[in-house]
């Protein structure tokens, strides 16, 4: 069983080595002339104003939340899809109900304006 994932492990190791190796290599051979201005965060050439760790639009949070909720529904859809033919009519009706309920939430979210991005 573990064998099936061994190649993946090997691939991961190779990818890591490649990534790390190139970073290390470039930092070895690249030039180093840091200056304060160079190390300042980019802000169109002006002096940086305030911290970057500020609050950002709630919209991003909304998207993340909606993603979680709708993505979780996929958790149910995937196994269902695989077994869908064997489940027959019952499975279809059941998933239909599931999706209808999901749509209620979806319509609600839509009408609430959570999907708008002005």
């Amino acid at each position: 069983m573990l064998g099936a994932y061994l190649p993946i492990l090997v691939l991961v190791v190779i990818a890591c080595l490649f990534g790390l190796g190139s970073v290390v290599f470039s930092s070895l051979i690249g030039q180093k002339k840091p200056s304060q201005v160079k190390l300042a965060p980019y802000e169109c050439g002006c002096e940086p104003v305030g911290s970057a760790r500020e609050r950002f639009s709630i919209k991003f949070y909304m998207v993340a939340m909606l993603f979680i909720l709708f993505d979780i529904e996929a958790v149910f859809l995937y196994p269902w899809a695989v077994l869908f033919k064997r489940l027959g009519m019952f499975g279809l009706v059941e998933m239909g109900l599931f999706i209808v309920i999901l749509f209620v939430g979806y319509i609600y979210v839509w009408k609430k304006g959570a999907l708008e991005w002005e």
């Binding site: 709630i58 949070y61 939340m65 979680i68 909720l69 979780i72």
Partner: peptide, 20 residues
């Protein structure tokens, strides 16, 4: 486990909203 994951997601959504 499926249900626990689902619930955890819903909890996360609500919990983060409360935190905000």
């Amino acid at each position: 486990v499926f249900f626990v994951m689902t619930v955890a997601a819903a909890e996360a959504a609500v919990g983060l909203a409360l935190m905000i």
